[in-house]
Design a protein around this nucleic acid. Structure first.
Length: 230
DNA sequence: GCGACAG
DNA sequence: ATCTTGTCGC
């Protein structure tokens, strides 16, 4: 089964899966963080239901104070469809363009989506981490693959995320009494460190500051573009 | 064969 | 993710 127009990857469905399996062997799950950590980035993408215009943003914050340092945007048309398990082929190209406009090289990147908590252990955060050669964390709002018991209701409570008997991440309560986040390392981090750093980047909101601010920026861009064209 | 299914 | 108004709760 093929799907048309896989731009800019030009891959069939089965070739995309084979590529993920191959690239997954290059993912590092050991800590390779630059210390001390001084710059943490968050990335996000938004678009409209009808229309293929995508808006990507990367925001760099200081660490540990989480003050915004730099913002880079990029917008373009995307025609790769959303297919569960193949999200990176849809969102990665526009995200990489946004990174090209960034001057600061972050020490860590938080991503809206899964890391290794993915059927082939290669979610968007892993793909971005390999491409940028940077440590990344997948901070997803809902599950793709994985099982877990619910953590306690207090902020910082965790429970292990597993798939087929394998430990692949952490279910993290980022705020008291909110739906927990699905945290998994994307690249160059181990599972406990990914959860710990996510918590360190989280303030009074459910989403960690880097991805939360990237999300706001992405929506600001979209509203601006819609207002600009008549 | 029947669900589940990041954003 | 997006569409879309009001509404319940701290």
């Amino acid at each position: 089964m093929n799907f048309p127009d896989l731009h800019p990857w030009d891959l069939t469905y089965s070739a995309a899966i084979a590529l993920q399996k191959d690239l997954a062997t290059r993912v590092e799950l050991r800590n390779r963080l630059r210390r001390p950590l001084s710059h943490v980035a968050g990335v996000d993408v938004s678009y409209r239901k009808h229309g293929d215009q995508f808006f990507a943003a990367v925001v760099v914050l200081s660490f540990p104070h989480l003050e915004p340092i730099e913002v880079a945007d990029f917008s373009a048309r995307v025609n790769f469809p959303y297919i569960p398990g193949l999200l990176s082929f849809r969102e990665l190209p526009v995200l990489l363009q946004a990174f090209r406009r960034l001057r600061t090289v972050p020490d860590l990147v938080l991503v809206d989506g899964q890391g290794i908590a993915h059927p082939r252990r290669f979610g968007l955060a892993s793909h971005l981490g390999l491409w940028l050669d940077l440590p990344t964390i997948g901070c997803a709002k809902s599950r793709l693959t994985s099982m877990a018991q619910m953590p306690e209701e207090d902020k910082g409570a965790t429970s292990p995320l597993t798939d087929k008997g394998e430990l692949i991440g952490t279910l993290l309560r980022s705020r008291a009494r909110v739906k927990p986040l699905y945290i998994s390392p994307g690249h160059r981090l181990d599972i406990p460190t990914a959860a710990r750093l996510t918590l360190d980047c989280t303030g009074r909101y459910r989403m960690p500051e880097p991805t939360r601010l990237a999300h706001l920026e992405t929506n600001r861009l979209r509203r601006e573009a819609e207002a600009a064209r008549v």
